[in-house]
Structures are given as C-alpha cells and as structure tokens.
Design a protein around this nucleic acid. Structure first.
Length: 921
RNA sequence: GCCCGAGUGGUGAAAUGGUAGACACGAAGGACUCAAAAUCCUUUGCCCCUUAAAGGCGUGCCGGUUCGAGUCCGGCCUCGGGCACCA
C-alpha cells in the first residue's frame, strides 16, 4: 500500500471539521495557552507560499502545546477593511463587501487545504458590524477619557469636568496639546461649544488640527507608517503635507508606558529596539531665551539634550510652522521671511526628504538673549527645525552639532568650540566626551558631568527645567474613505457627540459611488440621510489599524453581544502567549495594539497590560524568478551556461514550467503564442534557466500558490518543507529544490507501516537500540520546539526514520509515539497512522510521549579524574573502549587520533576544569 | 549618518567554547528493470596523489583571550533590515 496523501488529507480534514476537533472551550481545570497569527488582509491575489510560513509555525506550536496538556486557543480571522477593496470598487463599481467576501472565501479554501488547527467558530472579520460595534465602542470610551499623568492612567472626562467646575485648571494633571489656564467661574461661563473645544484638548480620542500626510490620488489622509519616502505604502502615490481637522488618538500620552512595558515582554531585541527608536525618548532641558524684536519681548522656550553646550550658542532657529515666527519677524525682514515661508510650504514631503542635504533658512530680524551669558544671538528660521518636536525652537551650537554646523557655515555664523582640543575647522564635534572650555562655571568638567551640572544650574536659577521628550506622535485616526468603520459620532449644533450604546453598531450606509464627492468630501457624504436624530453624522471613517488593534480580545468571546469580552473569559485566556507575524508591523499595529490594550486595561476591561507576551517574527519568503535567454533578434533560446557566447536578452519565465531550473521546453512553447515555434540551444540535453531572488509578484511570474504544492506533494509535505527550509525568523527565497527530500521522508516513514501490500506493525517488544532512537527523538523535539528550531527537529525525524528503517523496526511500541511526535508537523499522515495503529480518537487527544533520558545515556558513565586540582570527564563507553583504556589515555594526556581496536579511531580531548569527549568515528 | 542583524561546501543549512559541515538537495558511480519511474547502495569541503594510506588547508579579513574559537573580545570589509534633519 502506498502513501496516498490525497486520500488521507481529504479524509482527515473532513473528519476534523465534522467532529469540531479544534474547538476551544474555557476550562479552568486546564492551563490555557493562546497562540495567535497576525490575521491577513484578504487580497484579491490569494495566498502565496509566503503567507502560511508563520501560520504553519504557530500551528505546530499549538498542536505541540495541546499534546502537552494545554487548553489551546488558536483562532483565525480577517483584517477585512482596507484600501485595495475600495480602490477596486471605485474602478469597477463592485461593492467592497462583495469582493471582500469572495476573497475571504478563497483564503479560507486555501487555508483549509493546509490542515490548520484553527477554531473557526471564533472567526472574526473587522468589517462585520457585530465586530466593529466594539471598535466603535472603544472609540467612544477613548472619547470619554483623558490621560491623567499623575495617576499614569486613563480616567473619565466626567472627572475632569467636575474638577474644572470646582477649581478650574488648578491642580489638573492631564495629558494635553496646550496647557490651558482658567478658573471655575470662567469654565462655567463658557458656552457648550467652547467647553467642547476645550475638552478636545484632553480627550484620548480627540479632534484637532494637524499637519497630515495627504494623498491626493487616494483622496485620504495616511498615518506616518503608511507613508514611505514620501509615497503611500499602498499604491505608491505622492503624499503631501496639509493642515486638516482630524480625529486623533493620544498615543503620545502612553509613550512612557509603551517604553517600559517592553521590558516585560519576550520579544526579539531588534523589534524592541525598533519600538524604542520609534517612541524616541530623550532626556533634556527646556530653557527660556528672552527674544527681542524691536520693542517687543517674548520668552521663547527651547528644548535641548545638551544644556552643557549653552556657552557655545551662536544663534537660535525656529521651525517655519512655529507660531513664534510671526511675532519675531522684524518689519525689515518681513518680505524675506514671507518669501521663505511660501517656499517651504510649496515643497512636498518627498522633496523635503530628497533635499535634506541642502541648507535653507532666513533671518527673522530678532535676537535672543542667552540666559547664562546674557549674550545676544540672532534668531533664524529654517525647515531643519521641526514644529512637531520639542518646542519648535532650538538653540544652535554649531561647534557640536552637525546640522547647526552646516547652517552656520552656509550663513557665515560664528562657531565657538567649547570642548578642549577639538577641531571644528572642517566639521562639528558631536561626541559626548572631553573636557569643557570657554564655558564659565563648567570649564574643566567632563561632558557627562557638565550635562548634569548645567541641568542643575538651570533649574536652580529658574532658567529652565528638566524635560523628557518623545518622538512618538499622536495617531491620526480619520480617513476620508468608505470601506472602514464609521465614527459613532454626530454633530449636535456643531458639537461632536458620541452615539448612545444602543445605537451601535452604526453600520455603513449604501452609497451610489465610492469616490469622494465633487466638493472633496468623503464618500460617506454621498449617503442619503446620513444623520442621527436629524443631526449630521461624521463622514470620515476609521483607519485600517482600528479594527486590528483589539481583535485578539474578541477571539476570546467572539459572539458576545453585550461586551467586547466577558470579564471571566478574559480572566481565563488573559493575553496572547505566542504571537507570530512579520516585522513590518513593528511600528504600526504592534504599537497601536499595545496602546489600545493599555487603555482598556486602565478602564478595567482587560486583566493584562501587555497583549502579546512572546512574539516571533517570521521571515519573508521571497520569490525565486527564472529566466530564459533569447538570442537577440531570433526566437532561439540559449541555456544559461552557454549564454555568454551569444548576445542575449533575459526574459522572465513562468516558474510553473520550470523544475529544478530545468525548463520544460514543450510547456514553454505552449505558454505564450509568440514562443510556440521557439528553438533551443541545450546543454547536456537540457535547458537550464537562470535565476534571481526577487519579490514574489505576479509580474515576475514567480508566485507559488500553496494549492499547487498541495496537489503535487500534499499539505504535510508543504508544512514540513516550509519549516525545513531554515530558521523561521530568516527571510529566504522560495525554492522547491529539496522538497523531494521531505516527501521521501514521509514515504519512508510510511514504509515502516506498510510494504507493497502488507501491514507490517507488530506488538513485539522494542530493543534497547530502538528505544534509544525513539528517546533521542523525543528529547530533541521537546528542546527544539520550545526554541522554535523546527528545521532541526525535522532533521531529527529523518535521522530517526533512517535508523528505524535500518533496524527494520515496525514495532507498535516505537511507531506509536513517533506518530504522536510527528502530528504537529504532518497532522494528516499522523492522524491516519494513529488510526491504523488501532486508536479510535484523534491523535490531537494523545499525550506527548515521556522522555526517558536513561535510554539515551545508558551506556555512558561519568569519571571524576582530577587534573590540576579539578577535572571532570564524561566518557561515552557505548561503542568504544573500556574503562582501563580510557584512564590510560587520560593519564597519558593523549590528544591525538589513535587506533583502539584496529578499526575505530578515537580522539581524546583533555580539558582541564571541563569535560573530556571520547569520540568515535 | 545613527541603531540592529548576518557572513560556514555547488545549494538550503547544522554545531551548551570541545570531531566544523549533522540533516536534506544537487551531482557522480552502481544495484534492481527489456526500459523508465520508484526504491536501495557507494562517493561527495578544498589541495597534494594513479589509487589507498598519510598529510596540508579550511567557517568574510586582521589581531587578541584560551590547552582549545564558526562560537567570546577589539578593529576592518561586505550584505540585509530599521530610523533618519527628533535638537
């Protein structure tokens, strides 16, 4: 009987579905384990072999944990709101919901073929109203909360209002855009509109004017992580800066907690580092400089991390967008400044990035007074200072900052070195070491002490205060699109007001067309009667990350209509134990999710502060493209090895008609009409194609559909092969070279059960040698799976099966545990063989075999031989020499190769204080 | 520019500081077969050598620590990833 994967895989997939084998239920008697994949956006192109890489890895771990007795939650769903479906809708008029559902159906089909142990009862879709009800709910909660910096948590806005009514802004410790000051009386006197505006300054979900990434081609605003090099990530269209009123989330309030929380999770250092850089904490000082413009005086606060260099300040710089610019521009400079502002404004983000080397700026006409020296320095305006960071104004120390240096050189401003012995004639000296000079009371100090001394001095003399700044900005939360969650907000006399809970979900209205209106309003403005109780509803929708920020919570309790997740259920599943996904979400989804979770934690809706305990980043699977070489001007194709003898043109060829870089020439002729009379110059009778590693994409004909692999080799082979390819964190090109190896392994295993026509398994007792093979495998699998080293586990399987084949071992005592061990990797064949061995229930319910170390080390003994006072030797006597012989070698300090019994070569390695290995070759 | 990570056969890759190249692919030779597929066996880092034995060289480069370094330390080179006027 042969290994018939088609029949087996079909049979057990049906069995698992019919028996709800993978359904998870809360069960306090068992320890829980939550394994999560980053859910996919169901694109029209379907899955390629890169997608399942992480899913297979997490599935193996889920199945392993189940065998280990854990109650495993392993769900899957779809991140189904998004731009591509909407772009497609604009082009074709097809409703995004229709295409999204089609794509989901296709994804599901493809996923099902691979044999994942998902609990599909818990599937979520972000575009499902039953799901986005809770996205809208969370938004309202954020709208109704502010961040109290003293308590370091989110609190109800109602408390803030009560405090305003009692004492005005006095004693308020709330994260905000601008520090406001008013009394209780003033507060009570404000109109409703004014109050609403003031509260927006504090709410965690708030409306405010910001400079946003506007993509005219897409007609929407994009988040910073949706823009790369001034182009939109989706589509690659130009992006420009535009001031707009937008909904935003006060993520910045959580900067410190997002940073410290990283210490409590088990993520890779590189990923933590990326998040740390993105959050960008820096400890510095705010210093007030009095600035004078004729008779006008103004205190300007600057932020610096190097107050110690304050004696080297030779000018100040304001960001062009800063409000101070207008106040500090002198009448003489007005024309020049306005010209400069106009120039800055018309530059796109792209151009700014491209021209970061060119130095531009203009003198404002004002002067600032150095609070330490009393010296007057000119105030300049330049785009190299950003309005959004610090205070939008800096003190410039050209001797010790490369950007200030470049500016000073360009505009001929003085450069005063303040660190002994540094040379600033060619470039600035940015290092944080050396002795201070030209710096008054700081002279002679090391830079590190000087920084602290200067901070102390500034604080003691009321010139400034220590300040921690973060690079992390608030998240812009509005999108001028159709295919997203509607905001649960209506405008009552212009005041943004949340819908009551009973009105949720606020579902997307039907509209005639999906593009923005002629007047530039978002598509929802086309909806008929888009109102609530006669008041207009918000017309923008939420961004992609809204729905993906709390989906892991919804999986715990996906059908609950009265809460995002029931408290007890959340208390059982807690947080995600293992999360697998790509690094591309490092500064997007993984920041937003952590923020969202912390917010819900503050309000007491979830019990864990960090959502993802352990996180593994699977590498990307790149495409491996194949080429043929056409001799220029002919329809003749030359094999790769001979191409240098001709003038050739490289052409991408569909990898589906290439095997192991050998072209199927007949299929090639049939591939495209222009090739049907193609001729070939072969080497050794074959046409060898060239290859290159590129992105997996349709246009390069290098997309590999997992279905094709399932058809030719089966899902189990696909699963094994993807894991065998190398460590999962590593990016690597897809290459089917080698897939035969894992397929052969499965066939070999099969032949331990069946030869051509007979069932071979017996109930005979296993020999010590057979037990050794088994327990080596158990030990290896246990250690390797915990370390996510799946490729070496599979190697161990191959070794074990080779050994058992050699031993002609078809004993149930050995094969049954082997099948259990294999089930996480190749569940279909394992399930089949498990039943073949006479088991009634699913292999999923089996127990992970117990590892007995004695079987693997029974023939070794440990010597305690002293050498230099302390030396220990572990000697494996299983195959080689006796005790006396070993001791003789040890005493003689033998270190080279030796014959022992005329056949075996033994090498003795003597290690003082360590171990001796006797190695048999 | 700054911050991470990685460099090992023809290929994918293994190696708690202790036999470098496990395992697999590919390749070469052989067995079975009328033949093919499938399967099995042998060889396979490089150099010297007719072969074998024996030897020499080998983990990007240069040094160091160590009885012993692919692994640890210092300095370079190359590649990949992230951030980028963040004061």
């Amino acid at each position: 009987m042969d290994y018939n994967f088609r029949e087996i895989e079909q049979k057990w997939q049906t069995y698992w579905a019919e028996n709800h084998t993978y359904q998870a239920k809360e069960d306090p008697s068992r320890p829980k384990f939550y394994v999560l994949d980053m859910f996919p956006y169901p694109s029209g192109a379907g899955l390629h072999v890169g997608h399942p890489l992480g899913y297979i890895a997490s599935d193996i771990y889920s199945r392993y944990k189940r065998l280990k007795g854990f109650n495993v939650l392993h769900p899957m769903g779809y991140d189904s709101f998004g731009l591509p479906a909407e772009q497609y809708a604009i082009q074709t008029g097809q409703h995004p919901e229709v295409t999204t559902n089609q794509n989901i159906a296709r994804y599901r089909q493809q996923l099902d073929r691979i044999g994942f142990s998902y609990d599909w009862n818990r599937e979520v879709r972000t575009c499902d109203p039953g799901y986005y009800k809770w996205t809208q709910w969370a938004f309202i909660k954020m709208f109704e909360s502010y961040y109290d910096t003293a308590k370091a948590k989110a609190c109800p806005v109602a408390d803030l209002v009560a405090a305003f009514e009692a004492n005005g802004t006095e004693g308020i410790t709330a994260a905000c855009e601008q520090t406001l000051n008013f009394t209780a009386e003033q507060w009570k006197a404000y109109s409703e509109q004014e109050k609403s505006k003031i509260l927006m300054n504090y709410r965690i979900a708030y409306q405010g004017e910001t400079s946003v990434n506007w993509c005219p081609k897409l007609g929407t605003v994009l988040a910073n992580d949706e823009v790369k090099d001034g182009l939109s990530v989706r589509g690659g269209y130009p992006v420009e800066q535009k001031k707009m009123t937008q909904w935003q989330l006060r993520v910045s309030a959580y900067a410190e907690r997002l940073l410290t929380g990283l210490d409590t999770v088990d993520w890779t250092d590189s990923l933590k580092e990326m998040q740390r850089n993105w959050i960008g904490r820096s400890y510095g000082t705010e210093v007030n400089f009095k600035c004078v413009n004729g008779d006008f005086e103004k205190d300007v606060t600057i932020f610096t991390t190097r107050v110690d260099t304050i004696f080297g300040v030779t000018f100040m710089v304001l960001a062009p967008e800063s409000d101070l610019v207008a106040e500090l521009t002198s009448p003489e400079q007005k024309a020049e400044v306005e010209e400069y502002l106009a120039y800055v404004k018309k530059k796109t983000e792209r151009e700014r990035i491209a021209e970061t080397k060119t130095v531009t700026g203009v003198f404002s006409g004002s002067y600032g007074i150095n609070p330490l020296t009393g010296e007057k320095v000119p105030v300049w305006i330049s785009e190299y200072v950003l309005a959004g960071y610090g205070t939008g104004a800096i003190m410039a120390v050209p001797a010790h900052d490369s950007r200030d240096y470049a500016f000073a050189k360009k505009f001929n401003l003085p450069i005063i070195p303040i660190i002994e012995g540094c040379d600033v004639s060619e470039q600035s000296f940015d290092a944080k070491e050396g002795k201070m000079c030209n710096s008054g009371f700081l002279n002679g100090m090391e830079v590190k002490e000087a920084i602290e001394a200067a901070k102390d001095y500034a604080e003691a003399n009321g010139l400034g205060r220590r300040k921690t700044n973060y690079r992390l900005r608030d998240a812009i939360f509005s999108r001028q699109r159709y295919w997203g969650e509607p905001f649960p907000i209506y405008y009552k006399d212009g005041i943004p007001t949340p819908l009551p809970m009973e009105a949720l979900p606020l579902t997307l209205p039907e509209i005639s067309e999906f593009k923005p209106t002629e007047t530039g309003e978002p598509p929802l403005a086309r909806a008929k009667d888009w109102t609530y109780n006669g008041y207009p509803l918000e017309t923008s929708t939420m961004p992609g990350f809204a729905g993906s920020s709390a989906y892991y919570l919804r999986y715990m309790d996906p059908h609950n209509d009265s809460a995002l997740v029931d408290k007890d259920v959340d208390g059982y599943w807690k947080n995600v134990d293992l999360y697998i996904g790509g690094t591309e979400h490092a500064t997007g989804h993984l920041i937003y999710s952590r923020f969202w979770n912390k917010f819900l934690y503050d309000l007491g809706y979830v019990c864990e502060e960090e959502p993802f305990q352990k996180l593994i980043n699977q590498g990307m699977i790149q495409g491996r493209s194949n080429f043929v070489y056409r001799i220029v001007g002919t329809n003749k194709f030359v094999s790769c090895g001979l191409k240098d003898q001709y003038e050739t043109q490289e052409i991408h060829v569909d990898i589906n008609i290439v095997r192991n870089d050998r072209l199927d020439t007949e299929a090639f002729k049939a591939w495209r009409p222009e090739f049907n009379n193609a001729e070939f110059v072969l080497e050794n009778g074959e046409y060898i194609c060239g290859w290159a590693v590129e992105k997996m994409s349709k246009s390069m004909f290098n997309v590999v559909n997992p279905d094709v692999i399932c058809d030719t080799y089966g899902a189990d082979t696909l699963r094994l092969y993807e894991m065998f390819l190398g460590p999962i964190e590593q990016s690597k090109p897809w290459d089917t070279k080698g897939i035969d190896g894992v397929n052969r392994f499965l066939k070999k295993l099969w032949r331990l059960f069946y030869d051509r026509e007979n069932y071979l398994v017996t109930d005979e007792k296993a020999t010590p040698e057979e037990l050794k093979t088994l327990h080596k495998l158990i030990g290896k699998e246990q250690a390797d799976i915990e370390a996510f080293s799946y490729n070496t586990t599979i190697s161990a399987f191959m070794i074990a099966v080779n050994e058992l084949t050699e031993l002609k071992c078809s004993k149930k005592e050995i094969l049954e545990p082997v099948v259990v061990l294999l089930s996480p990797f190749a569940p279909h064949v394992a399930e089949e063989l498990w039943h073949v061995l006479g088991n009634e229930t699913s292999v999923t319910d089996a127990k992970f075999p117990e590892y007995v170390e004695a079987y693997t080390v029974e023939n070794s003994c440990t010597y305690a031989v002293s050498f230099n006072g302390k030396t220990r030797f572990t000697v494996d006597l299983s195959k080689s020499m006796g005790k006396d012989e070993v001791e003789a070698h040890v005493r003689g300090m033998e270190q080279t190769a030796k014959y022992v019994d005329g056949k075996t070569i033994v090498k003795v390695i003597v290690v003082p204080g360590k171990i001796v290995n006797i190695v048999v070759k």
